[in-house]
């Protein structure tokens, strides 16, 4: 469905994607995984024909340099932070996308209904929350029932609750024949939404594996979200950092990056330091 051959992209002499090749078969879900700056978003932009590049990309046989319009007609795209027209309402935005794709305007109300956007349909996009905007972006990407969904870190700008809801929504969109390409640095999302993982670093492919073997192959760590009384969050984070844990204040407590075997140790450390652990949750 998607063939990327020797893709190279440089910005002002700095190579951000370096001789990358991979294929995505019909119905396959592939994650481009890597840290910020790995080149994930650049690959997506090249597939969409937004930026010039060296190498060849074909989407269902359409060369994205020569037939980028035909290639894009098969693609639904969900960006990291949806950039939509603030002055337009939800319904107007969906209608605009329908018109640009020559789709029936009946899809506006259908899509709004399906994504719980019917009630605020007359709200301007500028007045929507981040989660609602992302749902709208997902709705737009689905209007043409595309064969390919390109998801560029679709949950990274959302709060935790909305992240989980959006990931569940995206999972429900998988169907036979539809290919997914997801860029993410969130392990849970990669495992949940994809079958195959391509790891990128500094624009180069540094490995690939199935998503089942993902955590063991790459020694992935988990996130431990610990809920504490509000006044204890800052001192707890300071103590954890001093003890060598990578942590940050988060919500009503702290968020720590730990290996699978360290989870209990971190909780014991907090308990021994006389912090009142009210609750905890493990994210992967």
């Amino acid at each position: 469905m998607i063939e990327v051959k020797h893709l190279t992209k440089a910005y002002k002499g700095r190579i951000v994607v370096d001789d990358l090749s991979f294929n995505v078969a019909t119905g396959e879900s592939v994650a481009l995984w890597g840290p910020n700056g790995a080149g994930k978003t650049t690959v997506i932009r090249c597939i969409l024909g937004l930026i010039s590049h060296q190498g060849h990309i074909t989407v269902a046989g359409f060369d994205t340099k020569r037939d980028s319009t035909a290639a894009r007609s098969l693609i639904g795209y969900v960006p990291q932070e949806p950039a939509l027209y603030g002055a337009l309402t939800i319904n107007e935005t969906l209608a605009l996308s329908c018109r640009l794709r020559n789709l029936s305007l009946d899809l506006v109300s259908e899509t709004a209904d399906l994504l719980n956007l019917a009630e605020p349909g007359r709200k301007r996009v500028a007045d929507l929350s981040g989660g609602m905007r992302q749902r709208l972006a997902i709705g737009i990407s689905l209007l043409a029932d595309p064969l390919i969904l390109l998801l560029d870190e679709p949950t990274s700008s959302l709060d935790l609750d909305t992240q989980r809801q959006t990931a569940a929504l995206l999972q429900s969109l998988k169907r036979p024949g539809r290919a997914f390409v997801l860029t993410s640095h969130r392990v849970q999302e990669v495992e949940m939404l994809t079958d195959h993982v391509i790891a990128l670093d500094a624009g180069r492919k540094v490995g690939e594996c199935t998503s089942k073997a993902f955590t063991s192959t790459w020694g992935i760590q988990s996130w431990l979200n610990v809920t504490l009384p509000p006044h204890q969050a800052a001192p707890a984070q300071t103590r954890l950092e001093a003890a060598g844990y990578q942590s940050q204040q988060y919500g009503r407590g702290v968020l720590l990056q730990v290996s699978a075997k360290e989870k209990a140790d971190a909780l014991t450390f907090l308990h021994n330091a006389r912090f009142d652990v009210l609750d905890f949750e493990v994210w992967r």
């Binding site: 018109r99 029936s104 719980n116 749902r135 209007l143 809801q165």
Partner: peptide
């Protein structure tokens, strides 16, 4: 906020003919 999990099947209706420059101008 809750999101219903949906099965999106799209539409097979006969598409209208819109000319993108006209749509963008509008």
């Amino acid at each position: 906020m809750t999101i219903r999990i949906v099965s999106f099947t799209g539409s097979n209706r006969t598409p209208p003919r819109n000319y993108p420059p006209v749509v963008i101008a509008s």
